[in-house]
């Protein structure tokens, strides 16, 4: 089975991200593969193993995003492709979906395209379903478990209310969640292979698509109001006394 894992590069989740002069700044924090997309790569690799298939990691981003693709290669992906073009600055999710769909076609299609649930930066979580819609393929979102049987795929979707089992014909687009299993660590061999890999870079001209005009644009960037939090530690002679004082404090805040 031919599988494509779509990934993005984002500032590490420990980064102190803030708005500075109208730009998002994350200081010297490293850029990493979007943590949700590590699950996508893991899910793709599980299917590769189950079906004796191949995994191609696909990313839109600047040249530096090759590092995120190398992480996917080190985990066990067979190939990687970067789509990079100055005209992609300010891309919105609809544009991303159109560019990804074009790249998926140029790769030669796939039986399954796997995404993470959302990205850590924009966090919209729209791109998987939009890519499915552009391709005209079924969307199986928030999969916690994937089973492929011939030309069909069945997933267990993790939704607010529990789990929903949904099936579709391949090719299909999936997004996966944490229940898929812990992303594997890159092996030593994997890291060596990844460091030697040459990653093709495709421009919009290579894909034969015009620069998508963004429908959604940012007007302003702000830091959230800082919370004055000095903790008041409640003490007492016994748990009962502490609990009594704490309950009074909470009731006085009128949050119940």
């Amino acid at each position: 089975m031919k599988i494509i894992a779509c990934i993005k590069q984002v500032p590490d989740s420990e980064a102190k991200v803030k708005a500075e002069n109208g730009q998002v700044s994350w200081g010297d924090a490293p850029l990493v593969i979007n943590p949700f997309d590590e699950y996508a790569v893991e899910g793709a690799l599980q299917q590769k193993e189950a079906t004796n298939g191949t995994v191609t990691a696909l990313c839109i981003g600047p040249e530096s995003a090759k590092e995120a693709l190398k992480h996917a290669l080190a985990m066990g992906a067979d190939e990687a492709v970067l789509v990079s073009d100055p005209a992609l600055d300010g891309l919105d999710t609809l544009g991303a979906a159109r560019v990804l769909a074009a790249a998926i076609q140029k790769i030669g299609g796939a039986d399954m395209v796997v995404f993470g649930r959302q990205t850590l930066d924009n966090g919209a979580g729209l791109t998987p379903a939009q890519t499915a819609r552009v391709l005209g393929w079924p969307m199986l979102g928030l999969a916690g478990q994937i089973k492929v049987d011939g030309g069909n795929v069945t997933v267990e979707r993790v939704i607010e209310e529990g789990r929903q089992t949904v099936s579709a014909k391949l090719p299909a687009v999936l997004s996966v969640v944490q229940s898929i299993g812990e992303p594997r660590y890159p092996s030593f061999m994997g890291i060596r292979k990844a460091s030697k890999a040459t990653i093709p870079v495709w421009s919009l001209a290579d894909l034969g698509v015009a620069a998508p005009a963004a429908v959604v644009t940012r007007a302003e960037l702000m830091n959230p109001p800082s919370r004055e939090t000095t903790v008041e530690i409640i003490t007492g002679e016994s748990p009962a006394e502490i609990a009594d004082k704490l309950a009074d404090k909470i009731l006085a805040e009128k949050v119940l």
């Binding site: 500032p11 989740s13 102190k16 991200v17 803030k18 708005a19 998002v24 850590l120 930066d121 966090g123 940012r218 007007a219 302003e220 960037l221 702000m222 830091n223 959230p224």
Partner: peptide
């Protein structure tokens, strides 16, 4: 960015 920043 997980609520670290707000955008309009």
């Amino acid at each position: 960015y997980e609520g670290k920043v707000l955008e309009k």
